[in-house]
Design a protein around this nucleic acid. Structure first.
Length: 225
DNA sequence: GCCCAGGTGGGTA
DNA sequence: TACCCACATGGG
C-alpha cells in the first residue's frame, strides 16, 4: 500500500510497455476452445511448443479432443497419439487425471472454471497429479480467462537480471509480486507473460545472455558495468 | 553428438 | 529445505 507499491506497479508497467513496443502483441494462446488450451498446457510441459501442437493435432484428427472422448480413449491409444509431444506416457496420465478432475468436480465441463473463487480453483488444480503451478496458472489464464499470473523460468531469470528478486525466489513469491501490484486484468496478464517468453527467446537464453542494447536496459536496477 | 524446450513428481540427505 | 533425476520427442 502506499508509495512503494505504486512505484513497483509503475515499474512493472514500464517493463510491460517496453516489451510491448519492441515485440508487439503476441497473440497467446494459440488454441481454439477452453479444453484445447487446457490440453495444450499439459502437452507444453518442458516441451517445444511445436511438438505440443503436433500432439493436439493428432488428438483432434482422431476425434479425441474433448473431455468425453478423451476419457473413453484406451491408455495405449492415447499414448500413441501423444508420442510426438514427448514424455508421452506421463502426458497421457496427466491428461486423464485432468479429465477425471473435470468430471469429479465440474461435471466434465471445462468452462466451469471460468466462474467461482480463483484461488480455490487454483488449489483444486494443484491437487491434480501432473498439474503444477505453471500449468494451473496457464489453464486459469489462457483457457478460462482468469487473472492468474503465469510465472516460468524466463520470468525468474528476467526479474533476477533486472535486480528485482533473488535467483532462487519461489514460484509463489514471483506470482504474488505481479498479482499484488498489477490490476487483475486477464488481457494484461496474458500479454505480459507472452512478452516475457518472447523476450527470453530473443535475448535472454541461458547460454546467450545479450544484455547490451536490451530494451529493458534503462529499467535494470543493477549498475551498468 | 550435444543442448534445449511455454514442468512435474519422486527420491534422498 | 535443497538438490538430483526420469520423462522423451524433435529442432538448432
Amino acid at each position: 500500500m502506499g508509495e512503494n507499491t505504486d512505484i513497483v506497479r509503475q515499474q512493472l508497467l514500464d517493463i510491460y510497455q517496453a516489451l510491448l513496443e519492441v515485440y508487439g502483441p503476441q497473440g497467446w494462446w494459440p488454441g481454439e476452445g477452453t479444453f484445447e488450451v487446457m490440453v495444450g498446457a499439459i502437452l507444453a510441459q518442458n516441451t517445444a511448443w511445436r511438438n505440443a501442437e503436433r500432439g493436439i493435432a493428432r488428438l483432434k484428427e482422431a476425434g479425441r479432443l474433448s473431455p468425453a472422448a478423451l476419457r473413453g480413449t484406451p491408455p495405449e491409444e492415447l499414448e500413441e497419439l501423444l508420442r510426438p509431444a514427448g514424455t508421452y506416457r506421463r502426458k497421457a496420465q496427466r491428461l486423464r487425471a485432468l479429465v477425471d478432475y473435470l468430471y469429479r468436480r465440474h461435471g466434465g465441463e471445462p468452462d466451469a472454471l471460468a466462474h467461482g473463487p480463483l484461488e480455490e480453483l487454483r488449489r483444486e488444480l494443484l491437487e491434480v497429479h501432473g498439474v503444477g503451478p505453471e500449468t494451473a496458472d496457464s489453464i486459469l489464464l489462457y483457457a478460462t480467462g482468469r487473472p492468474s499470473f503465469v510465472v516460468d523460468a524466463y520470468t525468474r531469470r528476467l526479474l533476477f537480471r533486472l535486480g528485482w528478486t533473488p535467483e532462487q525466489a519461489s514460484y509463489e513469491d514471483l506470482r504474488a509480486l505481479f498479482m499484488q501490484h498489477l490490476p487483475p486484468d486477464p488481457a494484461l496478464f496474458n500479454e505480459y507473460h507472452a512478452l516475457i517468453v518472447r523476450h527470453a527467446k530473443e535475448r535472454c537464453r541461458k547460454r546467450a545472455p545479450r544484455c547490451g542494447g536490451c530494451p529493458l536496459e534503462s529499467l535494470c536496477r543493477f549498475e551498468k558495468g
